[in-house]
Design a protein around this nucleic acid. Structure first.
Length: 286
DNA sequence: CGTCGCTCCTGGATGC
DNA sequence: TGCATCCAGGAGCGAC
């Protein structure tokens, strides 16, 4: 599911493709995925695309913020042509989706479509309808309680220990808490904890400063690795051109239940923590 | 305030 | 083959 690396890749791709474009038309369905009015968007020019936690923020020329959360199955795919499939001759300069996606856009999971003046279409697809597009004129309430970015230099062991010492939840849940660290989800929490050799079940108030130091450097390592490999596409993720990432080929534990631990060759286990699956090596992670 | 469990939703996998 | 059930999980919410 899109976590920090995947959303970051989408943001970078979108920034290249839609900054400077003016929105001509916006359609959406079902109603619950969009909060705002079309009027907030029409004839506005995109001046920037940014990211905070797992949320994409598109800023318009009047400072309106279009916030997009992909949740688990959301996709944002840009195509430089109008009338995909129907009018391939209308191709204009710029990138377009991977070949195998062209015939499928829009598809039955397309929930919203941005049409741009002079050509170009941005599709918001979301199989499970958990994702949303919300318009804000000023502050973005969803970002009020968001913690330090996973790749920020401000993320350090002292901060985590301070935040974790009064809490008794499993460290995996703690790492996924967006009010503590912004951007980590189920996949990268498993990967970071394997890297740090810490059991996902350990309680936060039982993790030492030295262990938090390892966790911090491992968080940065796995998130950077995720970005380097273009994100992970074990399920629905695709980038803004419709292409898949490669990070899933480099997972150490996530999705590898019963496979060999890359360190000790023991079996990787899958357990439930807070209703979510956690993958780890019981021998290597203490 | 912290923690837990439930909920949104679809489709692929599994079981009989 | 078909039908029922389970499972995936980000994040908000109510209960305690």
């Amino acid at each position: 599911m899109p976590e920090l690396p995947e959303v970051e890749i989408i943001k970078r791709g979108l920034a290249k493709k839609i900054v400077g474009k003016t929105i001509e038309k916006f359609d959406f369905n079902p109603p619950k995925i969009f909060k705002g009015t079309q009027k907030d968007l029409i004839n506005k020019r995109i001046i920037s695309v940014s990211r905070r936690a797992k949320i994409i923020i598109i800023t318009l020329n009047d400072q309106t913020k279009v916030t997009i959360h992909l949740k688990m199955t959301g996709q944002l795919i840009f195509d430089s042509r109008e009338g995909l499939g129907k009018n391939p001759q209308k191709r204009i300069a710029g990138g377009h989706p991977s070949k195998d996606l062209i015939a499928e856009l829009p598809n039955k999971h397309t929930r919203a479509i941005f049409h741009f003046k002079g050509g170009g279409v941005l599709y918001f697809n979301d199989q499970r309808k958990f994702g949303y597009i919300k318009i804000y004129k000023n502050d973005i309430p969803e970002l009020k309680k968001i913690g330090i970015e996973g790749l920020s230099d401000d993320l350090n062991a002292k901060y985590l220990q301070q935040k974790g010492k009064s809490r008794s939840i499993a460290v995996k849940k703690f790492l996924m808490d967006q009010s503590v660290i912004a951007g980590i989800g189920n996949i990268y929490s498993d990967e970071a904890l394997f890297c740090a050799r810490i059991s996902p079940q350990r309680k936060t108030n039982d993790v030492s400063n030295g262990e938090f130091k390892k966790i911090v450097s491992c968080i940065k390592e796995v998130l950077n690795k995720g970005i380097r490999y273009g994100g992970s596409s074990s399920r629905n993720y695709v980038n803004s051109s419709g292409g898949k990432g490669k990070m899933q080929n480099y997972f150490t534990v996530y999705g590898r239940e019963d496979e060999d631990c890359p360190i000790c060759r023991g079996k990787i286990k899958r357990i439930k923590i807070g209703g979510r699956s956690a993958h780890y090596c019981p021998k290597c992670q203490k």
